[in-house]
Design a protein around this nucleic acid. Structure first.
Lengths: 346, 346
DNA sequence: GGGACCCGGGAGAGCGCTCTACCGGCACCG
DNA sequence: CGGTGCCGGTAGAGCGCTCTCCCGGGTCCC
């Protein structure tokens, strides 16, 4: 910004019309004489005019931006913040969320502001940010079940949409997956493949997704007569999957099929199986969950329950849009269907 | 925003002082009587006041936001945009960049707006965004060498800082790594381990980082008498590393040490070696580059040349800050030193 | 004791935009 | 030929904030 940026006034003078007329041309409201329109457009080009957004926001009361909040639970220390960011981004899942959100926002010229809310101070910052009108609403992706942010947002009556149903009910719209159906798909596939000793590495049982994937898996097996299925609880990380699989093998050396509640753990499980001399899928079939590209294209390519994350993220953005514009007022929950993707591991 | 948000005026009335005084308390400028300060603070608390940022930005001409631009080359189609975003985030490298940037920006209450610039239209959008004053500057991470964005930013005299030196010189500040030294570290380590037949999987030779890591590696080996070192060019992806390693093995079955120009390719190389019955590091030692956590903590844990990405990203943000505030005017380049991290693979 | 100088506070302009008036002119119609 | 719309444009208020200018009163020093 070496010299002053041109204003509406400058363009108006250049085109020989009033400020309002230029504004109409820029925003495309009301009929403006085509000849004058062209005149104004040329003036805009000559001056290199770009409307000042702060001024526009001031009167429209719209920031045309939304906060993309990656939310954690507890009260992480300041130093751990960098680690938190790195960890979140390490999960291929998050990239898909961003892709879906940006895909929806971009054509609407709305921009996502990246925020982390892993401590009480950071959460307060998010609320303030929204109250200041710097963003029109929040898209929240929580990494923990007991994330306090959703409730804070709801209390403040700030427009927000969540990815995944919160553990505690909160009057906020959210998108989610039919996790139960996903677990069922995995179970049915393992049985169809001829597995006789299925087991599972569940997600953390504190989060709904963890509980429901497990429930769906168990229910489907129970209906087919498998009532006592070994379960090892994992934490959605590679290492936890590895450890869980090692544990399962120790207690049940005869397992021939494993459903891991996400791809990262499935990968860990594959590694553990390899270390214990089991071949995948010949000795033990492995089914993952998510279909996160990065985790899936390794060897052996993972059979997994696909979660349409991009679509879900886009829907999340769409819901927020409606809440912001007041075309939707009641909290809504949109459920997506999982899909089995068969590759090599099962 | 059900009811109107409280304004400075409201707080002033509540506290029985003038607008200016409240503004002074909020911004901490000049001496305000402690008693009155307290009065104002209470009024702020009672009213739940949060200063409107659009209004503030309008007069300060500061958005207190920067664009975090992930930039590609060519003219990707609209449909490929989602894939682009997903791909970028899949690289663990990017998460570290974000962590470093956020670590610097957050204490300064500056927020990053995520933007993708993988097509001409998207690039134009970035420029407009900055010209509109919605962000005070841009932090650019390019995935391609011939990215046109830096030149566009420089031409428009918009504050911007790049990660890595652009292929074509551009009058913009940037941070970078002493890639040559990194290549040298890898070479020396392999030789020190007793490797007699070193080879390398280089990065794309169109990008400076690719060229220089290779040059450093070659030079160091040449000084020790290894003048003809097998080179396979990769594309910084897992698959390209796998393919390159397979190629190297086919032509030089006796290689006993490999330097891959990034961790992802090193992982691919490990996989290829495993498939060809070679043990790592017993038969072939593998050294990676980056020290990207996610890629490194697999089995065998990767020996790698660490790039202090977080520090580099933070420095990038610091430089931008200086450019924005006018305390730095000349384009500056800051070089960081790589560091060898020895783990299991070599 | 009087002038210079702060120090704490208020008044008010103005940042660049949108948007609601309003107004002149022109076609149409009774 | 005087209303009645309607079209195409202008005028101007005002969004909420910062910041310069100003002013009263106390302090300090000669």
């Amino acid at each position: 910004m070496s010299r002053q940026a041109p204003t509406l006034e400058d363009v108006a003078r250049e085109a020989g019309v009033s400020r309002a007329t230029v504004s109409r041309v820029v925003n495309g409201v009301r009929n403006v004489d085509p000849a004058i329109q062209e005149l104004v457009r040329q003036a805009i080009r000559r001056t290199g005019y770009a409307p000042n957004r702060a001024a526009r926001s001031l009167v429209t009361r719209r920031a045309e931006a939304v906060a993309l909040v990656v939310s954690g639970a507890g009260d992480t220390s300041e130093e751990a913040q960098a680690a938190f960011a790195a960890r979140v981004f390490a999960d291929p899942f998050f990239g898909r969320v961003v892709a879906g959100i940006v895909g929806y926002l971009r054509p609407r010229s709305v921009h996502p502001v990246l925020m982390f809310a892993e401590s009480a101070a950071a959460r307060e910052e998010v609320l303030t940010y929204l109250r200041q009108g710097r963003a029109d609403g929040a898209l929240v992706v929580s990494s923990h079940a007991d994330d306090p942010l959703p409730a804070l947002l709801a209390d403040a009556a700030l427009p927000a949409v969540l990815f995944a149903r919160p553990a505690r009910p909160v009057p906020l719209s959210h998108v989610d997956l039919a996790h139960r159906d996903g677990g069922r798909l995995a179970a049915e596939h393992l049985l169809a493949r001829g597995c006789r000793r299925p087991a599972t590495i569940s997600g953390p049982l504190t989060v709904p997704a963890g509980q429901e994937r497990l429930a769906g898996f168990r229910d489907a097996l129970a209906r087919r007569g498998h009532t006592r299925v070994p379960v090892a609880e994992g934490g959605f990380t590679y290492d936890s999957g590895l450890a869980a699989m090692a544990g399962l093998l120790a207690e049940h050396p005869d397992v021939d099929g494993v459903f891991a509640a996400n791809d990262l753990m499935a990968r860990g499980a594959c590694q553990a199986l390899r270390e214990h001399g089991r071949r995948v899928p010949e000795d033990v079939a492995v089914v993952g969950f998510d279909d996160s590209t990065a985790a899936v294209d390794r060897h052996p390519r993972l059979t997994t329950v696909r979660q349409p994350v991009e679509d879900m993220a886009a829907e999340m953005a769409r819901l927020l849009d409606e809440h912001i514009h007041g075309t939707r007022t009641e909290p809504t929950s949109v459920l997506f269907d999982p899909e089995l993707v068969v590759r090599e591991s099962a």
